[in-house]
Amino acid sequence: MSDVVIGTGEAVVFWVLGPIALVGALGMVLSRNAVHSALWLVNTMLALGVFYVVQEAPFLGAVQIIVYTGAIMILFLFVLMLVGRDSSDSVVETLRGQRVAAIVLGLGFAGLVGAGVARATQDLAVTGLAGVQGGETSNIEAIAGVLFTRYLLAFEVTSALLITAAVGAMVLAHIERDAGTRPTQKELSRARFLTDRPQTLPGPGVYARGNSVAAPALLPDGRLAEDSFATGIEPQEIEQMPRPTGRAELGTPDAALGTLDPAPSDIPGGRDR
C-alpha cells in the first residue's frame, strides 16, 4: 500500500475550517441563547461535512449536510420554538464546583486523549481509499457494497430502530384529548365575557410606527400596551411620532396625519371649526 501524501490544498482547507469548527463548538457551549447555540452548531457541522468530503467520503459529507444540518438541526429549532425561547440559561451555576470540575476534567481529558492519539498516530500510514473507490467505483457504490453485504443485518435492524423511534416520538409527543373536554366556541365566548376584557387583545404594532412582532401596541396616551407584548421577545422601543401635549401644539388631526387640508385648526380634532 502506498502512502498517500496529504496535499497542500487539504492542509489549507483544514487550517481554515478547523478553527471555524472549534469556534462553532465553543460558541455553542458559551452562548446563552439556545437558538444561537443551534446556529453555532450548524456552523461546526457544516465544517465537518466539508472535512468528510475532503477525506474521500463525499456521500457522508452530503448526508452530514442534508440530514444533520438540514433535518436534525431544524428539528432542534422546531422544538426550541415549541418549548419557548425563554429558557436561556442563567449565568449562575447552581451545582457547587460543577463548572470548575467540568473545565478541569475537560482539559485533562482533551490533553490525555489528544496526546494519546497524537502519540499513537504520528507515524500512521495513510492508505487512502483509492483501492476501493475512485475510477470506476464511486464512493456511494463502495459504501453500498459493504453496507448491503457485510452490514446487511445491522442495516435492517437500523430500519426497525428508526420505525420504533418514529412511533415512539409520536406516542410521546401526542396528547390524547377526549371528546367533550375541549370547550366549545359558545363556552369560550361566554368565559371571555366573564373576564375584565371581553374584546380582543391589541395586536403588536397597533398605532406604532413599525408593525414587527417586537413592537408593542400603543395606548392612546402613548404608553406601551403591556397586553400586546409578544412572549419571548423583548419589546423594542419603536421610534414614535411626536405627540402634541397641549392644545396649541396639538394641531388638527389632519395636520397630524398630514392630510390635504391646508387650513389648520386650533381645535383638537378640527371638528368644530
Binding site: 451545582l95 460543577q98 467540568a102 485533562g108 481529558f109 490525555l112 486523549v113 494519546g116 502519540r119
Partner: peptide, 28 residues
Amino acid sequence: QTGFVRSYALSMLGGAVVVAGALLAVTA
C-alpha cells in the same frame, strides 16, 4: 445521588479521564 443528571455526567467524565490516563500510562 443528588438527582442532578449533570453531576452523574461529571462522574462519568471523571471515569473516562481515569480510563484514558490509564490507557496512556500503559501504552506509554
